[in-house]
Write a protein that binds this DNA or RNA. Structure first.
Length: 815
RNA sequence: GCCCGGGUGGCGAAAUCGGCAGACGCAACGGACUUAAAAUCCGUUUUCCCGCAAGGGGAGUGUGGGUUCAAUUCCCACCCCGGGCACCA
């Protein structure tokens, strides 16, 4: 047959339409009762911002190649997709152009779904999950009620960013340089508000310990980040009695230095500040709090003031001053510390600044106590405790144990573990999120919404003005409600849930998306879970992936799953950047997926996304490389079409060589899929094969041509589904190509019979010899020395050593 | 400051277990086809030196050391880039 010109539009449109018709017949459907082994492959669900860009394409191209490959390997594949549809941008859009958040969100989903289909990602759309719809978020509420029952959801006061100009709460990302994003000269204040928390700390130890389960199948750096985030640290809590107040508890990891404590420092948010200090001091503390929030992370000059209060060190009996310090965090430990300036750098800086006494109590094992007059920085190493009453002369470790034991025995402290991870604040003073199912009754207090009243529906008619505590506050028919307990007039909770709640369990819902009785059928997830392969951006290494782990453990403890961990293997792909910057609307450097599909086709776009770099690496998108993939697909298409059916005439003299290359290529791709996902090298291997086919075309027999084209078609099916399907049909086949068996490679056929061996003399390449593959070391050494060129160079030299590595090289060491 | 990644041609990259550095692609250049162009096909392309040429020789994977017959790969020190955490007591 004469070759055809590769017209991506024609091919992709044709199959796009056919597949749309076939999808109802279960093209990408996961089977519910299958005898095949299951494989659950999942890509992180996107926020429906309005358009997919090439960063998404990369993520989905990886997952889709894997899903198609696993189908071809005989697995029952679950490959679902959904929408992380709640969130701030929908409200911002509403403020900006008056479009209701739901309408804006659903229309974005429609647009993006079209792009998904255009790219032929193999999703089982019957399982689609949209988190902003009541049939999904009612289960967020259901879980929330379960957590209230177990004491895992609770209320406490916490600080929020407050803009006095808007009269509203700001999300952290709405705070720009310490000011409101809409009022650039209005500094953001910190206000205390009663808010809802989930007790993630109840699982802190288990979240840390179970990282061991994930070790080896999650990227090491993700696990490290999680370990740091959880931040377990062992130490002790000790009460210092404050005159006229009572005991104040401090946390320290260095109780062995307690005899060197020369003052006590409180966080500016500490209770004593509110209850015992005068107005002037309180104002000072408030300023510190606001300044810290405005500054954001980073080094701040240490600052503080003496409260005039005095506290007693329970070990030494000494009286020390009580200060307030801006560097002491209320959210860690107890919000109060003992300052040991001699042995802690931060305390050293603070105390030096304010002239507070420095008292060394630890000497190095083989040295003297530090000389206070010469100290330039704190000596924070362990050593031997001195000037410490009965503990003097003991090593730090021993003193730590004994002191903690004594504190516990005598009731003024104990050994204690503190975590950096905090309880998860889930309250958002926002409209576009899951309503928290609680009611505030003047008589009964906080009352959970009864199960049979779920879902608490988010009202649709809401004015989004960006003013007031929350848009829901201004909706009387939402707020005014009868107390479920006593029937009195009560107020509905108007906070909504953090959107990380939605994404913490959505992958369970995919297994049973229509269920109206329970979040999902336990049997169904027992079959599908855990997720075999989860693929997404490394930016979710901490929050999303810790919350998901927490949620699974919580569900396990209420009997909904037996899984300890939801995700067996995690792959974090690199970012797609443009001109060195992360793609974002604000930078205006987004490359829309549809543009690439329009110009060069979906196959080209997704294949280039895989070819540009190994998937875990960041990649700078440039359109020039796209052209190369397009040419490559054209080369495949032209070669195949002009050889279907294979013309008689090729003498077959290149058959062995071509079949060898074919099986070598298959081997490389198969290994790439099994082990490391370096699809860039998989695709390079196919390019090499195609180059060889072009070079040897006339010398390939009819039968071999047919075999090669068939295998090549199957090989590219995971990467370029449209082209593969078209060629599959051209060869007279029917049915989806990705449901065919993945071609097995024949290790024998892939073996080289002859290899070229480099010959080095003293490590420098001097000659090459051709020998049969597998030639032994001794013979190889002989053959190398017999080479004419080697002989000439060896003239008058003595051989010291012959290193011969079969099939690799020969190195002659001479003098 | 601490903890991770990473640094290889003009560019994206490859070298999977210590064994030919630069596979594959982009860009560039040359040739074939064409009235011409596009498309396509074939070729050259790390760099420096010697040679009209065939060919030959040297250097080279951020820098400096080390181990080894042999180092992009292993070890030590340092420089640069990216990311995460950042007063966590």
């Amino acid at each position: 047959m004469p070759e055809k010109t590769y017209d991506h539009n024609q091919i992709e449109l044709k199959w796009h339409e056919r597949w749309a018709a076939e999808e109802g017949a279960g093209l990408y459907k996961a089977e519910e009762n299958s005898s095949k082994p299951k494989y659950y492959v999942l890509e992180m669900l996107p926020y429906p911002s309005g358009a997919l860009h090439v960063g998404h394409i990369r993520n989905y191209a990886i997952g889709d190649a894997l899903a198609r490959h696993m189908w071809m390997r005989g697995y029952n594949v679950l490959h679902p997709m959904g929408w992380d549809a709640f969130g701030l941008p929908a409200e911002n859009a509403a403020i900006k152009n008056g479009r209701p958040p739901r309408e804006w969100t659903l229309s974005n989903i429609e647009k993006m779904k079209l792009t998904h289909r255009r790219f032929a990602f193999s999703y089982d759309w019957d399982r689609e999950v949209t988190t902003c719809e009541p049939d999904y978020y009612r289960w967020n509420q259901w879980f929330f009620l379960r957590m209230m029952e177990k004491g895992l959801a609770y209320r406490k006061q916490a600080m929020v960013n407050w803009c006095s100009e808007c009269g509203t709460v700001l999300a952290n990302e709405q705070v720009v340089d310490g000011c409101c994003w809409r009022h650039e000269t209005t500094p953001v204040e910190q206000r205390a508000l009663d808010q809802w928390f989930l007790r993630t700390t109840a699982y802190a130890d288990e979240l840390l310990k179970d990282i061991e389960i994930l070790d080896g199948s999650w990227p090491e750096r993700v696990l490290t980040m999680q370990r740091n985030w959880i931040g377990r640290s062992e130490g002790a809590e000790v009460d210092f009695k404050v005159d006229g107040y009572g005991p104040v508890r401090i946390f320290t990891t260095r109780i062995d230095t307690i005899y060197g404590a020369t003052c006590m420092i409180l966080a500016p948010e500490h209770e004593i500040v509110r209850t015992r200090l005068n107005a002037e001091m309180q104002a000072h503390a408030k300023k510190m709090i606001d300044a810290r929030a405005a500054q954001g992370p980073g080094d701040v000059e240490k600052e503080g003031f003496d409260t005039g209060l005095r506290a007693t060190n329970p070990f030494s009996g000494e009286t020390v001053p009580v200060w307030v310090g801006n560097f002491v965090l209320m959210g860690y430990g107890t919000g109060a510390i003992m300052a040991v300036p001699a042995h802690d750098q931060r305390d050293f800086e603070f105390c030096s600044k304010y002239g507070i006494k420095i008292l060394p109590v630890i000497r190095p094992t083989d040295g003297e106590l530090p000389d206070v007059t010469k100290m330039k920085e704190a000596a924070d190493a362990y050593g031997v405790v001195e000037n410490s009453g009965p503990y003097s002369g003991k090593p730090s470790e021993e003193a730590k144990r004994e002191m903690a034991a004594r504190a516990e025995r005598e009731g003024f402290g104990k050994a204690a573990v503190t975590f950096r991870i905090k309880d998860w604040g889930v309250s958002r003073q926002r409209y576009w999120g899951t309503p928290i199912p609680a009611i505030h009754c003047p008589a009964c207090g906080v009352v959970p919404v009864p199960d049979d009243q779920l879902p608490v529906l988010l009202p649709r008619q809401v004015a989004i003005t960006g003013k007031g505590r929350s848009p829901l506050d201004a909706v009387p028919e939402f707020v005014n409600v009868a107390c479920p307990k006593c029937g009195a007039a009560a107020r509905r909770e108007t906070d909504t849930m953090d959107t990380f709640v939605d994404s913490s369990w959505y992958f369970y819902r995919y297994c049973d998306p229509q269920n109206t009785a329970v979040p999902y059928d336990k049997e169904k997830i027992a079959y599908w879970f855990p997720i075999d392969q989860y693929i997404g951006g490394v930016e979710h290494a901490i929050l999303h992936l810790i919350y998901s782990r927490f949620w699974t453990k919580m569900m396990r403890d209420i009997g909904l799953t037996t899984c300890d961990e939801p995700v067996k293997k995690l792959f974090t792909q690199g970012m797609v950047v443009r001109n060195g910057a992360k793609m974002s609307k604000s930078k205006g450097n987004v490359v829309p997926a549809d543009d690439i599909a329009e110009m060069r086709g979906a196959d080209t776009a997704r294949m280039f996304a895989l070819f540009a770099a190994p998937p875990e690496k960041d990649v700078d998108w440039n359109d020039a490389g796209v052209e190369g993939i397009y040419r490559f697909l054209g080369r495949i298409y032209r070669f195949a079409t002009r050889n279907i059916p294979a013309p008689a005439g090729g003498d077959g003299s290149a058959d062995t060589q071509v079949l060898r290359k074919l099986h070598q290529t298959l081997e490389r791709i198969t290994i790439d899929f099994d082990h490391r996902w370096h699809f860039n090298t998989s695709i390079a291997a196919v390019m090499e094969l195609v180059n060889e086919l072009y070079a040897e075309e006339a010398r390939i027999s009819q039968a071999t041509l047919a075999t090669v084209i068939r295998t090549l078609t199957l090989m590219i099916a995971p990467f370029a589904p449209y082209l593969a399907q078209e060629l599959w049909e051209e060869q007279g086949n029917s049915g989806p190509v990705f449901r065919e068996a993945w071609p097995a490679f024949d290790a024998e056929l892939a073996k080289e019979t002859e290899v070229e061996i480099p010959v080095q003399i003293n490590g420098k390449l001097r000659a090459r010899i051709n020998v049969p593959a597998g030639t032994g070391a001794a013979e190889l050494g002989q053959l190398a020395q017999a080479d004419e060129k080697v002989k000439a160079l060896m003239e008058g030299k003595a051989i010291v050593k012959v290193i011969a590595v079969p099939d690799k090289l020969v190195n002659l060491v001479v003098k």
